[in-house]
Design a protein around this nucleic acid. Structure first.
Lengths: 337, 337
DNA sequence: CTCCACAACTTACCCGGTTCAGTAAGTCGT
DNA sequence: ACGACTTACTGAACCGGGTAAGTTGTGGAG
């Protein structure tokens, strides 16, 4: 089936291609009567402007890119990215931007994808997640002048816009809460230590523990997988001075930690309190339901999308804080026995 | 930064645009020496062909589309789609096709997205998930002659290729296994009853239960969410003749079911055996780990991608079975007390 | 020595929108 | 009644690749 073009509409309306273009784009240069006639014809034959032709003359691809840089086995279970995509995509769809996705294995490969996308003019901008220290992607984005928004700061990204949530504030609140319950030995199982927001959390965790006079603030680095999270938990719980509360950097590790505690015969929350960072349905699904640091990840994604669209429109934007995660107490936290 | 075009390369190499195009596409018409010189220049200045210009002349967008038709709160936790996307995308990236994603709320909206994508020439084909009876999407795809692959059959899709897994075989194996353990009262919490593969499973479940002489084969319809899955479980467990084993149509509902059983003071697997369909890391994460029907979802997605690319290349393809899920026994199944 | 075949290009047009520079007709003020 | 201005268009160039058709230049066969 031949897909209709503006030339087809022009022929049927008895006007030139240019007139059709003006009419359909709401530009001045055609009478209201002609415009309505053209719009009616376009509707009738189911016309959609060829995005390639548009991109070729207009320069905007009306698409943005997102790379996912976790191995498949984490992506499939980690609710964070899907939540992010949902919110992100809702905002894009409303302004009829398409979302292009690619799974990558390394930051180098990710950079290559950005170069190719931008060179091919497939996209108008990208969302960058998992900001690292001295991130190799930042100079490339600056060099390409590719509009971008970075999630996972705050950090040094020059003129590239950032969206982040106040992780330091959230972890401070959590530790204060656990201490108020009577906990003195609090440990933490973190996400990938190379990520900037992991470092922010670790620093804030150490600071608040020191200020509250807790002598040991142990953070065990992990990688967001349930497997590693479980292993880290086991390591924490076999010692003599085992912690009475553990904070996990994501929900998957927290659920794995819960299973390890149960398998070791420890009661949750009686012997061990558990707090999960990011409150997906997963947290309410297990028994006991997990106390979690909730934030609206979809809204976080939507926020990032809005910033990116603003950056694409050439508006100079900079660091935006998207809100603090707040503690949602459930059955997995209680005073220690 | 101005992005380089073939005209830039042509100028630097002292040849015409046409020669550059031939050289870069491996077409005959240029000498080997010239080709190498041109390729070297392209490499040096970081040339990437403008995909819009290519699509405009060549007709292929080198992109495929996927719509996600579940509400955000399910998408974020349901590991199936992310697994599918991972496998799918790996195959596409290898042939440098891009993946375009959109979240939709209804089949009607989904159809609209297909129309737009195809009309705009944004994509060369689509993957369609969640096949239903008399699916409204099928006639539209046929009318548009939009290359497509359907996941979630088998069903009547005319000339549109299908990829499905042998759900009937898998559920038959599972029921036989539970009966061999000694179970006589087996129930099932299903996914959305409108989906064709749910109906396939229900029919096969009824058939095998009848053939094994189990008088009641109760299937409670649900919607893949943990919430609903938990509610369905509670309804099943409050009766006098409560089942001793429950099969869940996805892992999220199975985990929720486990929590409900534990909350009601039932031992798993002592008082209740649980089987999950689709074996994500989630199943090994909880305590006890769940017996699951494993299948390689990423490979399933890769399979679908291969079929779609074949369909785009104009090869006539038809129903392909992508393998049967096999039972992976873990701690959640045992003989009933 | 001529003619032909072929390699190695160049030229020119195509794809389907956008946009700018005309142009013809109508309107208005004086 | 005439120039100034506006309205409603048309025609053509342009974006950046792909490609059919045309143009050289060279070597070899006859």
């Amino acid at each position: 089936m031949k897909r209709p073009t503006i030339a087809d509409i022009a022929r049927r309306a008895g006007v030139s291609k240019g007139a059709v273009s003006y009419a359909l784009n709401g530009q001045p240069g055609v009478s209201e009567a002609t415009r309505q006639r053209i719009v009616a014809i376009a509707q009738e034959i189911g016309f959609n402007p060829n995005s390639a032709a548009r991109a070729l003359s207009g320069a905007s691809a009306r698409a943005v890119g997102l790379t996912l840089s976790r191995p498949a086995r984490i992506l499939s279970i980690e609710p964070f990215f899907m939540g992010l995509i949902s919110g992100f995509e809702a905002e894009l769809a409303a302004r009829s931007y398409a979302l292009t996705l690619q799974v990558v294995a390394t930051p180098e490969q990710e950079v290559e994808v950005y170069r190719r996308w931008w060179g091919e003019r497939r996209i108008d901008g990208v969302i960058v997640t998992d900001l690292r220290e001295n991130d190799v992607r930042i100079p490339v984005l600056q060099q390409l002048q590719l509009p971008a928004v970075v999630i996972g700061g705050p950090g040094d990204t020059g003129k590239i816009a950032q969206v982040w949530s106040d992780d330091a504030g959230a972890i401070t609140e959590t530790v204060r809460y656990l201490v108020a319950l009577g906990h003195r030995r609090i440990a933490r199982v973190s996400g990938l230590p190379g990520l900037l927001h992991t470092q922010t959390r670790t620093r804030a965790f150490n600071d608040v523990c020191a200020s509250l006079g807790l002598n040991e603030a142990l953070t065990v680095p992990s990688d967001y997988t349930g497997e590693e999270g479980g292993r880290a938990t086991r390591r924490l719980l076999i010692g003599a001075d085992r912690p009475t509360a553990i904070i996990y950097d994501n929900d998957v590790m927290a659920v794995a930690g819960l299973a390890v505690a149960q398998e070791m015969g420890l009661a949750v929350p009686g012997d061990l309190s558990i707090v999960a960072w990011d409150d997906s349905p997963l947290c309410s699904l297990v028994h006991p339901p997990l106390t979690a640091l909730s934030r609206d990840i979809a809204e976080y994604g939507a926020h990032a999308a809005r910033e990116l669209l603003a950056a694409i429109d050439g508006k100079q934007v900079s660091n935006v804080e998207a809100g603090t995660a707040h503690l949602t107490p459930r059955g997995s936290t209680a005073p220690p026995r």
